[in-house]
């Protein structure tokens, strides 16, 4: 009995420690964000941020786009099977448009970015921990959070919402192509229908979500990296854990945000 309570206690402490570490790092990261801004911040951090934007954002466009196109087709086809039976095939347009802007666009993007960049963050920082580079930064009077994390955070906060928009556009276009081939609906009419069915709130709520997802991916990825102790095997484990934990937390955050938007009536 004692061992059971002991192990429950130990597991609880471990998780509390993780949450504590994550919140401390989040606060430090938000405060360090100013250093990465252009003009007012440190220009070397801004340059690093631009490099990160290319890596997190620009290089992810093909993958995010393709995932969104596939997602759009899947959503349209699955919706059409059911809606055709009640003679409401037209509602596929609403389903794809609203489904993507509010939910699938940001979520698919976050999963892609977490797989591509979250793992890269933890591998990079983990390797820096193992090779004493993080210690070297600190003794050279650099703050690792500001030097390493802030550019990544700023870059993710800018690029993840942009990727979400790209994802939305690709997904909606895929829906349009499906409608064109299955009901001969003109693409221009389709786009008009899309614009009437989505409201500004849908887009905004999607973008708010994607900001939260970006925060989760960067901070979980970096925390996993900073917690690496030991050798190369620890780096490998941290990479796996970064992807698993950030994907999990992204979905949890998605539920929370969706619930908030649902109950506050912002659709």
């Amino acid at each position: 009995m004692a061992t059971l309570t002991e192990s429950i206690g130990r597991a609880t402490l471990k998780h509390l420690d993780y949450v504590g570490g994550l919140s401390t790092q989040l606060w430090a990261g938000v405060r360090a964000l100013g250093a990465a801004l252009p003009v007012t911040g440190n220009r070397y951090r801004w340059k690093a941020s631009i490099r990160q934007m290319l890596e997190i954002g620009v290089q992810a466009i093909p993958m995010v786009g393709l995932m969104a196109v596939c997602g759009g087709f899947i959503l349209a086809m699955q919706g059409a099977t059911e809606l055709r039976r009640v003679g409401a095939l037209h509602y596929v347009i609403d389903l794809v448009a609203v489904g993507f802007t509010r939910e699938l666009g940001p979520l698919l993007t976050a999963i892609a970015v977490s797989g591509r960049s979250g793992s890269a963050f933890s591998a990079e920082i983990g390797t820096m921990m193992v090779t004493e580079e993080v210690d070297a930064l600190r003794v050279m009077a650099f703050e690792p959070i500001e030097f390493v994390l802030a550019p990544k955070y700023l870059a993710a906060l800018i690029t993840v919402p942009c990727l979400s928009i790209i994802s939305n556009v690709c997904g909606i276009l895929a829906g349009g192509i499906f409608m064109f081939f299955s009901t001969d609906l003109d693409l221009r009419l389709y786009l008009q229908d899309v614009l009437t069915s989505i409201q500004l709130q849908d887009v905004v709520s999607g973008l708010i979500k994607s900001l939260a997802f970006a925060t989760i991916i960067v901070h979980v990825g970096c925390l996993e990296g900073f917690r690496v102790r030991g050798g190369p095997d620890a780096v490998g484990r941290s990479t796996t854990s970064a992807v698993v934990k950030s994907t999990f937390l992204v979905i949890v955050a998605d539920v929370v945000f969706t619930a908030i938007f649902y109950f506050t009536g912002r659709r």
Partner: peptide, 19 residues
Amino acid sequence: LKRVRRCIGVAFQSAALFN
């Protein structure tokens, strides 16, 4: 601490150069 660190130079065991 930052001010003190600027008058200390450290050469690490693994060199710790930024790759």
